[in-house]
Each structure stands twice: as C-alpha cells, then as structure tokens.
Amino acid sequence: MIETKRLILRAFEATEKDIAALYEILADEEVNTYLPWFPLKSQKEALDFYQERIAKRNCSNETGFYFAICFKKENRPIGYVTVSGEGNHDFGYGVRKDFWNQGVTTEAAAAVIDFLRNQGWSYITATHDINNPASGAVMKKLGLTYRYSYKEQWQPKNKQVTFRMYQLDFDEKNDTYQGYWEQYPEHFIEKEIE
C-alpha cells in the first residue's frame, strides 16, 4: 500500500465493493475513449476484467502492478495506476470523470513512480493517443519526456491510432525503449509537441 496526502494506493480486491467501483470507472464511455478496451456493460464484465487483467498484475514486481486509487476517507477505488512488468514497462492510469482536473491522477501516478524507483526499476514508458493531449500533459508533469511516435492498428477497437511514446529513466543509461519503434513500421519523431 502507498499513501499520499489524500490517497491510498492499494491492490484491487475481488470484493463486491471493488468490482462495483471498477465497473463505475470502466463503464463510462468518455473515460474509456482513449483506453484499449470497450466500456464495460455489466458488473459481470467488471469481474471478468478483474480476473483476466488485474489479478495477474495485482502488485507483483515480476508481472507489474495494478493499483486502485482511493481517497483515504472512503478507501473505495475511483481510478487506477498500472505498470507492466514486461520489457516496455508500460505505465498507465485512469480515473472517474467526476474526479478529473483535481490533481488526483498526477498525485497517484507520482507516488507509484517513486515506488517503482525504490523497487529498482530502471525506466517506465507511457503512450498516449495524439488526440488526447491531456494525458500527455500528465506525463510531462510526472517527468516523462517524449521520445517518438508510431501508428498502430489498435485492437480490439480496430482503428488506427498515432501514439506518442514518453519515457522516464531512473538510471543513468537513458536508453530509449525501442520496442514500439521496431514493432510498428510507421514511426517518426515529431519536431514540435503540444
């Protein structure tokens, strides 16, 4: 568990309360516009999502981390911060729309970044759709820097998306993660980023 001034970041649990909260986060169409999955339609889908995605990455240094963002006074998930244990160390976040523009995402993500640094991770990457510059602004606030862009036929939504890849190094190497550059043939470096 990680604590900040306002928040508790903890593992999601397979409880009725957490699954209901997960459903609230992932059912909203606007919140999920720039996420790789479709909005959830039921609490059963939320439980399936938990079992298929979160339980496998629920706070283990090897497989990655999936933290529930909760206000201390309620300890009920309002969002999440996740990072993959795979080579990309892909870092992501989401929060319910009624908590947008309150600094919740930045506060939670910064705490997880400090945690990862203390765990000995050497870097993280994060990507955002070029049509979602607000996510890029959060990445910049957190200290990530733009490295390159690439185009991907995004699944399961099956639409072409241009992603900007950012990275934060915790060591002195400053080696840019090349996985997306090598995987997607249409890649480039933008001269000016909003």
Rank of each mutant, 00 (worst) to 15 (best):
M1L: 10
E3S: 15
T4M: 10
I8C: 01
A11V: 05
F12C: 06
T15H: 07
D18L: 00
D18F: 00
D18P: 02
I19L: 09
A20F: 09
A20P: 02
A20I: 10
A27N: 12
D28I: 00
D28M: 01
E29I: 06
E30Y: 09
V31C: 04
V31N: 00
T33Y: 05
L35W: 04
W37Y: 13
F38V: 11
S42K: 12
Q43C: 13
A46P: 07
A46M: 04
A46R: 00
L47W: 06
L47Q: 05
F49N: 08
F49D: 08
Y50S: 02
Q51A: 10
E52D: 15
A55L: 08
R57W: 03
N58K: 05
N58S: 12
N58C: 08
C59R: 05
S60A: 14
E62W: 07
T63N: 11
F65D: 04
Y66M: 10
Y66I: 04
F67T: 00
I69R: 01
I69E: 00
I69F: 03
K72Y: 11
K73N: 15
E74Q: 14
N75P: 05
R76V: 15
R76K: 15
R76G: 11
Y80V: 10
V83C: 10
V83Y: 03
S84M: 10
S84L: 13
E86T: 11
D90Y: 05
F91I: 03
Y93L: 05
G94D: 02
Q102I: 07
T105K: 00
E107F: 09
A111W: 04
V112W: 01
V112Q: 03
I113D: 06
I113T: 12
I113V: 15
D114V: 11
L116A: 09
Q119S: 14
S122P: 08
T127F: 09
P133Q: 08
A134E: 09
G136F: 01
G136Q: 00
A137Y: 05
M139L: 14
K140M: 07
K141P: 01
K141L: 02
L142F: 03
L144C: 01
L144E: 02
Y146D: 02
Y146H: 03
Y146E: 01
R147W: 06
R147N: 09
Y148C: 03
Q153R: 13
Q155P: 08
K157I: 05
K159D: 14
K159L: 15
V161I: 15
V161D: 04
T162C: 14
T162L: 07
R164D: 10
Q167G: 00
D169K: 06
D169T: 13
F170M: 07
D171K: 11
E172A: 14
E172T: 13
D175T: 12
Y177A: 06
Q178E: 13
E182C: 12
Q183W: 11
Y184L: 05
Y184W: 12
P185V: 10
E186C: 11
H187L: 01
H187P: 04
I189A: 09
K191F: 05
E192K: 15
I193W: 07
I193H: 08
